[in-house]
Computed example of a mutant assay.
Amino acid sequence: MTDTEPDLRTLPLPEALAWLREHGEPADPRPDIDTASLKRRFPRLAHVRTRDLVVAAPSGPQPARLYRDDTAAHAGAALVWVHGGAFIGGHLDMPESNWVALELAARGIPVLAVDYVKCLGDVHFPAPSDDVLAAWRFARERSAELFGVEPGALLLGGASAGGNLTAGAAARLRDAGERLPAGLVLVYPALDPDGAHPGAVPDPSSPTAQLSLNFAGSEARLHDPHAFPGLGSVGGFPPSLVVVCEHDGLRPSGEAFAARLANAGRDATLHVEPDADHAHINEPSHPGAARTLDAIAGWIAGRW
């Protein structure tokens, strides 16, 4: 953040949206999160190859990036990964997308990291969800070429807002009678209009509720189980790993979703990352971030 760039987290949401519409996403000031720096910091990433792609999505061409390490023992499965950003930000170069994908690829799990249109006041659900579905279908149709696996070994996952879009996409695929992912990876997911109080009517003055309404586009859509999959049926959901953080305000949303999956007889694993807060995997130096990635890789590898 430069002297002329505000801290968007401190601005009222309408002002933050206006700034993002005019200026775009501010540059990340950290000097060591680009791919070259990450490979120097973590030599295990040295052999991961990346390839930039474009997905023809309903909102227009969306960037995607393929990650593979052909020197690593293949886990037998691959992952389509969706970053977070409160539905108003985030991109493929943020660590929550780029570093996570590099790390998983180095563990033998090819990854397609995907982007989606942001809700900057004039765009709302289902537009980001439509883009994620387009990316999922793109990956399924090309799974052998992209990942070296059959479509049935392809998983879908995401963090925060990306976790919402991931779970929502699974619900939409199920309700449309389409093939579901082989598994879901949901990291500190935002699955309810008020993640701190699942099932409650959100306080309209809270920042979380304002972000949820900005995403949904209307108060009626705050009750849409495709927009907020924590509100809907979990019947038919694939095996799911839900990661929550000890100090995260959204922890109740993820825990409630994992419990509902288990109570419905679905295959659900809950991983609680101790001494971590929301967005910890966007910080490669956080000790819990590596633990979380180990948990994700272990869960995926254990299923194939």
Rank of each mutant, 00 (worst) to 15 (best):
F215K: 05
R142M: 08
F147R: 06
S59R: 06
A259G: 12
A135V: 05
G76K: 02
S233P: 11
H278L: 05
A196F: 02
D3S: 15
L92E: 00
S37E: 13
R142D: 06
D131L: 08
H74G: 11
S233Q: 09
P110M: 02
R107N: 07
D194T: 12
M1Y: 13
S206P: 01
R21G: 01
A176H: 05
L45P: 03
D175G: 02
E273C: 14
E178K: 03
V48F: 10
P181C: 09
L20A: 02
R41F: 13
A190W: 12
V111W: 09
H83T: 12
E150S: 15
E15C: 12
L184M: 09
V123E: 01
R174D: 09
D175M: 05
L186A: 08
V149R: 06
F228T: 05
L17T: 00
S285W: 12
V201P: 14
P29I: 14
S129R: 12
Q210V: 06
Q62L: 11
P274L: 03
T50F: 03
S37C: 11
G235I: 14
S240P: 03
V117P: 07
P63H: 06
A220V: 13
W136C: 05
S143P: 04
S240I: 03
L213C: 07
C245M: 13
T208G: 12
A153L: 11
S240A: 13
Q210N: 08
L17D: 00
L156G: 00
F138T: 10
V149Q: 02
P225L: 08
A268L: 11
L156M: 01
V244E: 09
G158C: 02
H280W: 02
A264N: 08
H286F: 04
G249F: 15
L184I: 06
S97P: 09
R140L: 14
D122R: 12
A169P: 07
V132Q: 09
E178Y: 00
V243K: 01
A105E: 03
A73P: 13
D248R: 01
E96T: 05
P189N: 06
P198H: 07
V117N: 08
M1W: 15
D70C: 05
A170S: 09
L186P: 03
E25N: 07
S143G: 00
M1H: 15
V80Y: 09
L66G: 03
D267R: 14
G162N: 05
L250A: 06
V111S: 04
P189W: 00
P63I: 08
G24P: 01
L293T: 02
T35P: 11
P189V: 00
V114K: 08
G163I: 10
L154F: 02
L53K: 10
G230E: 10
T4E: 15
A73L: 14
D32G: 10
L270D: 01
A279P: 02
A139G: 04
T292W: 10
G232S: 10
E178F: 06
S285T: 15
P128Y: 00
A256N: 15
D70E: 15
A106D: 04
W99H: 10
A56L: 14
A73C: 14
P287R: 04
E283A: 13
H197Y: 08
P181M: 02
G158M: 10
L191Y: 04
A134S: 09
A106R: 06
P225K: 03
T50Y: 01
A276E: 05
A256P: 11
P287V: 01
W299Q: 09
